[in-house]
Amino acid sequence: MNENDRSGRLQLGGADLADEHFGLQRIAWGLMALLVLAAALGLFGDGPLANARAASPTGDLDLEYARVARSDASTTLRFTLRPGPSCGSAAHLTLPIEYAAAMQVQGVLPLPVRTRAARGQVTYSFEVEPRRETTVVFDLKPQRAGVLRASFSLAGGPPLQIRQLVLP
């Protein structure tokens, strides 16, 4: 006799659904394992798959950022500035003000010597050593979920464009 038929005269509401339920349960376990693996790899942010790099066409600006970020969780933008000889000891990094508001800038390191907002852009000015690479880190806390597009530029140079997905 099949094990499944061994209920005798015991009245079990919905017992015939048990096998189906176990099958679905195994499928759910598989999906959960895939989700945990995807999360560990950074598909939902904070992992190798989420990390991205971008560079401006002229190479004066590099950016390491999270392709996938999470709303209300810290993320960073790590810029490498390579100002040209004409820039002197000041580097001016420009961000769209809409992006800065959506991502809520929590801190900037090193501290900018000046911040200026004009024409939908916010410009951070940093004191740098002429013709030397400088790293600037922005700590951000995204305020809303969705796809964000932004373009950054150094001293009005060609823009570096990125797209970020912010998960809820």
Partner: peptide, 8 residues
């Protein structure tokens, strides 16, 4: 760890 997102 300070990550209050639903995804987390």
């Amino acid at each position: 760890d300070g990550d209050g997102s639903m995804t987390n």
